[in-house]
Design a protein around this nucleic acid. Structure first.
Length: 272
DNA sequence: TGCCAGGTCAACT
DNA sequence: AGTTGACATGGC
């Protein structure tokens, strides 16, 4: 298989993949093998070169958001916590995920840790997707909208009845084109439509909007971000929706990007 | 053993 | 409108 490469700047592959935004990848022989929709490709970073195989350069640039100017965004904020997190994880970029895959993935994320989220998604792909192979690595394509229609099989993958119900309902009511239409709506409209889905609250909706629908102002507030908001910004609220609004007011137009740096920093801190 | 994880919903007051 | 408990599992 042919290996290609491009020059990258302000990009760190490890931070980008391991910061907790994205779940379908494995490390093998120094490469990251990445599954997305029906694709399986591999990438590896050597300094300012990004090596890749089994995808086009166009796809790679779009997926890793490589043409987006992060310096410009971070220059606008004088917040010391954000600047510090940026220095610590320079090169972390938000991945442009497929909206359908992102929505189902984050429904799995509720009240779970990241290794288990990865496992549940991998099980859904194995049960409902098609086998794809690259080198010695075998993965499975992400089940297309409409395919997630067997209650028992879903439950074997995600364990809980609540998540099974949620995935069944989303599979029936939602699809890629409806999700893509939300990109044109206002933040509030898109949020309302997503949170109408069973199992999708403000946190998951903000993840889907930030990671797949281009709402860079969306700030998902989970357990880690709550700690950050209290300790560093003195923001507290018993109501998640109000706390999210406060955080978004505080962080501004690109708040979701800043959030990802702060989230990763806090998550690493909690581990040790 | 007990607590927690990229939360959400239903059932209370 | 605000608060509380259930949810299934694995890792520490």
């Amino acid at each position: 298989m042919m290996i290609n490469s491009i020059s990258v700047k302000d990009f760190n592959l490890q931070h980008t993949l391991e910061c907790g935004q994205f779940f379908r990848f494995v490390k093998h022989n120094g490469w990251y093998y990445i599954g997305h929709r029906n694709k399986l490709f591999k990438v590896k970073q050597k300094g300012n070169r990004l090596l890749y195989s089994n995808i086009t350069e166009t796809f790679l640039k779009r997926f890793f958001n490589l043409d987006f100017d992060y310096d410009r965004i971070f220059k606008k904020t004088r917040n010391k916590h954000i600047s510090k997190a940026r220095n610590q994880f320079k090169g972390l970029r938000l991945i442009k995920q497929d909206p359908w895959e992102c929505l189902i993935s984050y429904v799995c994320s509720a009240n779970n840790n990241i290794p288990k989220i990865k496992k549940m998604i991998a099980q859904l792909c194995k049960e409902f997707g098609r086998k794809v192979k690259l080198d010695e690595v075998i993965m499975y394509s992400f089940p297309a909208p409409g395919k997630l229609n067997s209650k028992n099989k879903i439950k074997n993958c995600v364990y809980t009845g609540v998540k099974t119900k949620s995935i069944l309902e989303i599979n029936k009511k939602m699809n890629s084109s409806r999700l893509n239409q939300l990109k044109k709506q206002s933040y509030q409209t898109a949020l309302n439509k997503l949170t109408q889905l069973y199992g999708v609250g403000p946190k998951i909706a903000n993840c889907v909007m930030l990671f797949s629908l281009d709402f860079l102002e969306a700030v998902p507030v989970d357990i880690h971000m709550k700690k950050v908001l209290v300790k560093k910004y003195s923001l507290v609220d018993a109501c998640d929706t109000r706390l999210t609004s406060k955080a978004m007011n505080c962080f501004g137009k690109y708040g979701g990007i800043f959030q990802q740096y702060l989230f990763y920093q806090q998550r690493i801190k909690d581990k040790d």
